[in-house]
Structures are given as structure tokens and as C-alpha cells.
Write a protein that binds this DNA or RNA. Structure first.
Length: 120
DNA sequence: AGGTTGACGATAG
DNA sequence: TCTATCGCCAACC
């Protein structure tokens, strides 16, 4: 199984105006304990052209903001999609209750079938 | 081959 | 709720 190829597909499913967590994507990719690899894959561009700005950690923090080309770019992209980004002592944060992607079990299953079909 | 790193996450206290 | 600590694992020295 090619984790990073799966990542590319899974990340592509995150709806505009929503954000997903690293752990959530790892789970969708069939490797629930590989949250760190999701971040690694994005940082190194191993997942190709994906909407990396929609990725936050489990607390809603834009933990990868510093890795974007321009400082503040991730925040800007999110706000352009209607997502409110707050500034707290933890840094730039979004409200997961409001903007977190709540994928259905059906979506997860569909994704799994697709991976099988693609042989990844 | 073995130690370190890190866009993470869960849990105990 | 906040902190400390531990588990995790592919990459990269």
C-alpha cells in the first residue's frame, strides 16, 4: 500500500470551507497511527498537489503554517473559504466544531474501495 | 545498524 | 483545564 498516494486522494476529498486533522486523514488512509507521516508527506510534497491549507492538528491549530511559502498564507487561504481563524496563545486556530470535516462512514468505505481499485 | 526528528495524538494526574 | 509523559513510525542522518 502506498500511503502517500492514498493521502493525495483522501486530502482531495476535504470539502472547501472545511478542515481535516492529520489523524483523521491517517485513519482514512488505513493507517490510524500515522498522523505524523501525514504531516511529513505534506511538508515534503510527497502527496502531490493537495489542499494542504485545510490540514490542522487535533486541537484546530494551524501547526504547519510555518512551512508555507509565505507567512500567513495558510490563514489567508482558509479565510478566503469562509473559515474564521482565531489568534490564541496556541497560535492560529480554527474551531473544529464549526469547520471540522465530519466525514461519513459511507465516505470512508467508498475511499477504501477506491484505493483497492487503484491498487494503492 | 542504531539514534534522532517531528505540519501528531492519547492519556494520566 | 492544563501539564507532563508516553506511544507512534517513516525518514533521515
Amino acid at each position: 500500500m502506498d500511503f502517500y498516494k492514498r493521502m493525495k486522494v483522501a486530502c482531495g476529498r476535504i470539502p472547501e470551507g472545511k478542515v481535516a486533522t492529520y489523524g483523521q486523514i491517517a485513519l482514512l488512509c488505513g493507517k490510524p497511527r500515522n498522523a505524523r507521516q501525514v504531516g511529513y508527506g505534506l511538508r515534503c510534497g510527497l502527496a502531490g498537489d493537495v489542499p494542504a491549507h485545510r490540514m490542522v492538528n487535533a486541537r484546530g491549530v494551524l501547526s504547519g503554517a510555518a512551512s508555507f511559502e509565505v507567512p500567513g498564507l495558510q490563514k489567508m487561504l482558509l479565510e478566503k473559504e469562509g473559515i474564521q481563524v482565531m489568534i490564541t496563545d496556541e497560535g492560529q486556530v480554527v474551531d473544529l466544531k464549526k469547520y471540522g470535516w465530519k466525514n461519513t462512514l459511507r465516505e470512508a468505505e467508498t475511499l477504501a474501495v477506491e484505493f483497492e481499485l487503484l491498487g494503492i
